[in-house]
């Protein structure tokens, strides 16, 4: 701050408080709703203070699931486990693949290097939502519907992560690779002994971003999975809300909402420092 202006500081705090409130209020309402009995959430105004059903609701949801036909009695822990598997495979897979690709592009000269670079870059221009029908067809033809492979493999290419690694590798002094070469390290050993440990910050940042990306996938699992065994929690919520003929069981739905956001939010908040760094660096 350049000069002291108490009223400005006060204004800043008030604005930020309102902002935080705006962001947090829906979560509070959701959480409160998830701790009541369904009949408490039938008429307005709904309560704004937590009820007594916290444990009951969450344990029922986690271990037995909803009994309505579209959500089909799949216990939420099962969906959460699917989401976790999917998010982990996507995050780790994207990081590994991008790390290798960026390493090849930065540390080698070979024919079609730029072609490979542009091919990877093109994926930026093709969000899955845009080419959803033909992509679905490819996965179906490969017999990958209703499998973890189908859920994850088509999403493993990442232009963003490749760029981030490439950007970082370019800042690693050339002399480090040369020193390693003099020390008798080949490319793979250099990658493992030097580059990988130096990239931990970037990897942490990418992990947060990619885990969130994977966990929050919606359209893709919606199309890929007809078998309830592979249902993820984010798509499960949609099934819980859009029930035919009756009201959704709001406390349960809201508990599912809370549980569905918990893992990615926790990771973002805990790894905040790296996450912010990584996010801002993808701009460059």
């Amino acid at each position: 701050m350049v000069e002291r202006r108490p009223w400005l500081t006060l204004l800043a705090h008030v604005t930020l408080a309102i902002g935080v409130l705006m962001v947090a209020f829906p979560i509070w309402v959701t959480f409160v709703a998830s701790t009541h009995r369904p009949e408490d959430i039938m008429t307005a105004p709904i309560p704004l203070w937590p009820g007594t059903q916290l444990l009951a609701n969450y344990s029922e949801l986690l271990f037995s699931g909803l009994k309505n036909p579209s959500a089909g009695g799949v216990p939420l822990w099962r969906m959460m486990a699917n989401s976790l598997v999917m998010a982990l495979i996507i995050a780790i897979g994207k990081i590994v693949l991008s790390f290798m690709a960026a390493f090849a592009i930065v540390y080698f000269r070979f024919p079609f290097r730029m072609a490979a670079f542009w091919l990877i870059f093109m994926t930026l221009m093709l969000p899955v939502e845009v080419r959803i029908v033909p992509t679905f067809k490819v996965v179906a033809d490969l017999g990958m519907l209703n499998s973890y492979a189908g859920l994850t493999v088509p999403l493993l290419a990442s232009a963003t992560a490749t760029f981030l690694f490439r950007q970082f590798f370019l800042t690693v002094p050339d002399e480090l690779a040369e020193a390693a070469r003099m020390d008798g390290a080949g490319p793979l050993r250099f990658m493992k002994d030097i580059l990988l440990p130096l990239s931990t910050t970037n990897i942490a940042a990418l992990f947060v971003i990619m885990f969130t990306f994977g966990w929050n996938q919606y359209l893709w699992p919606l199309l890929m999975t007809t078998d309830r065994q592979y249902m993820t929690v984010v798509m499960g919520i949609q099934r819980m809300i859009n029930v035919a003929d009756t009201d959704p069981q709001w406390p349960m739905v809201m508990a599912a909402v809370i549980l569905a956001m918990l893992p990615p939010v926790a990771i973002v908040v805990v790894l905040q420092k790296w996450f912010v760094k990584g996010l801002v660096e993808t701009e460059k």
Binding site: P173, E178, M182, D183, D193, I194, P197, L198
Partner: peptide, 19 residues
């Protein structure tokens, strides 16, 4: 290969492995 020439090099920026 550099590693097999039985030489050692000191770089301008030292090129120490930071980790």
């Amino acid at each position: 290969e550099p590693a097999d020439r039985d030489i050692a090099m000191v770089f301008q920026n030292y090129a120490l492995y930071p980790h």
